[in-house]
């Protein structure tokens, strides 16, 4: 989204093409959100299976929204944004997953709370 002006008008094919991307992104997001709600609330699957499915649906929606609304894709123009987002997610995984891992490991040795996990 680094270009704020186009020399084409709203009747151009380029505009319609771009619009289609928003519509697709929106439609898919709605479907994925509702699917998540149905799976989490419906009780069709077991809790842990449902947990994994809604997690995957969320990741899918994340990718779709980056593509549809924030224009992150494989084109040359979007390359810097793509690398930036990918690097950020590496750091996020290191930090957030690392935090959860370290804290769960600590909890397992200190008899904290619900988990009651056993240590190594």
């Amino acid at each position: 989204m680094s270009h704020i002006n186009s020399d084409k008008g709203m009747d151009s094919g380029e505009y319609k093409h771009a619009m289609a991307r928003y519509v697709w992104g929106f439609a898919l997001s709605v479907v994925l959100t509702l699917a998540g709600v149905v799976i989490a609330g419906g009780g069709v699957f077991g809790a842990s299976l449902a947990w994994s499915i809604v997690g995957i649906l969320a990741i899918a929606q994340l990718v779709i929204q980056f593509w549809a609304f924030m224009h992150v894709d494989l084109s040359q123009d979007a390359r810097p944004d793509l690398y930036l987002v990918m690097f950020t997610f590496v750091i996020i995984i290191l930090m957030a997953a690392g935090t959860v891992w370290v804290l769960a490991d600590l909890a397992s040795r200190m008899g904290m709370g619900a988990g009651g996990m056993t240590g190594m």
Partner: peptide, 18 residues
């Protein structure tokens, strides 16, 4: 540098493997 922060608190009580 993003992968080593735990070495500042080795003694906090996590498992030996971690």
């Amino acid at each position: 540098s993003f992968t080593v922060w735990v070495h500042h608190f080795f003694t906090m009580g996590q498992t030996a493997n971690l």
